[in-house]
Amino acid sequence: MVVAAWIYTLIPAAAAIGGAVVAVNARPGPVVVSAIQHFAAGVVFAAAAGEILPDVMHRGSPWATVIGGGIGVIVMLLVKQLESWVRGPAGLLTAIAIDILIDGLVLGIGFAAGPKVGLLLTIALTIEVLFLGLTVATELGESITSRSRIIGITTALVVLLPVGALLGAPVGALPGPVLTGFFAFGLIALLYLITEELLIEAHETPDRPWVTALFFAGFLALLVLEEMIG
């Protein structure tokens, strides 16, 4: 399972690098970025609600849920605070690096829950990390003129995905309550990603009905895919 989690992280890693390549050659407009954010938020929300949440609820470990979820809240709020402590490109890159590491950790935890959960989380996080690649390249493009350097920095960041997966995958061998705590942590991390990053940034541009509808399109798309996988 550890090997599978590591291999699957290569998919979102490739998506992030691809997003950076696109951004340095043809920077997407704010409406396109907002559309990607809405769709990604819908997909990640479906993965959190349909895959991680049932595992947390059905394990019957309320204290493990509280502790794991509480740690998740603290960690994600610290990540948010970090952006104000370290300003400029360095702050952005640090926050994104932590986000990517946590994404990898969540993916590893997903594979600990089962191959199906890991696969659906891979799909959800691929779209989200694609957006991160676009964001990094766009922000760096304002201060760095070398396209290869921008892509190189993005590639260095996404290396943290497999690192996080390697840290998360072994939790499947831990006792049940501890595993529940990790699932609760992963659930909070995904909800934070949706509510405090993707959707907030997505609404920085004027709302358009078709863009907003992409949130629900992403949500339904993952639900349909889950039913097809069975």
Rank of each mutant, 00 (worst) to 15 (best):
A26Y: 08
V158Q: 05
P62Y: 10
L190Q: 08
L92R: 11
W63R: 15
G141N: 00
V86Y: 09
P162M: 05
V2T: 15
A64F: 10
I144A: 00
L193Q: 12
G104P: 08
I151H: 07
S143E: 05
E204N: 14
I229S: 01
R87A: 15
W85E: 13
P89T: 08
L222I: 02
N25A: 06
V163K: 06
G133T: 12
G72F: 05
G168K: 00
A13P: 06
K80G: 14
H203P: 07
M228E: 09
F111A: 02
V33Q: 11
L105R: 05
P89L: 11
G70N: 07
A20Y: 04
L174V: 06
M1A: 08
L222D: 01
M76L: 12
A26E: 13
L134F: 11
V44A: 03
Y192K: 05
G110K: 02
L121Y: 05
L77S: 13
V21T: 07
V32K: 11
I96E: 06
R149L: 14
G118K: 00
L160Y: 11
L140M: 13
V178C: 02
E197F: 09
R149I: 11
P89W: 04
A47K: 01
S34K: 05
M1N: 04
A26R: 15
L161T: 08
I102V: 13
R149W: 04
A124T: 03
L166S: 13
M76V: 03
I229A: 01
G68I: 07
W63M: 14
G70D: 08
P170L: 12
G72E: 05
M57N: 01
V159S: 10
G218Q: 09
A48K: 08
A173Y: 06
A112C: 09
G50M: 04
S148V: 02
V22K: 10
P28R: 03
L120P: 04
L101T: 04
I36M: 13
A20V: 10
G172M: 09
W85P: 03
A97I: 12
L119W: 08
V3P: 00
V178T: 13
A184T: 11
L125G: 04
Q81R: 15
E83F: 14
A23W: 04
V56P: 03
I11C: 04
G168R: 00
Q37E: 14
L82N: 12
V171S: 09
P89N: 09
A95P: 09
A5N: 11
T94G: 09
F183Q: 08
P170E: 10
A64G: 13
P62H: 10
T205L: 01
L223P: 03
T154W: 12
A165K: 06
I153M: 11
T9Q: 07
L220E: 12
A169T: 05
L140V: 06
L199Y: 07
Q37G: 07
G218S: 08
W6T: 15
L10I: 12
V21G: 01
L53W: 01
A113Y: 02
A4L: 14
T180H: 11
P62D: 07
E197N: 13
P30I: 01
T145W: 01
V211A: 10
V117H: 03
A97H: 06
E51K: 02
V136Y: 10
E139K: 15
V24W: 01
G72M: 03
P62N: 11
A15Q: 04
L119V: 15
E227H: 07
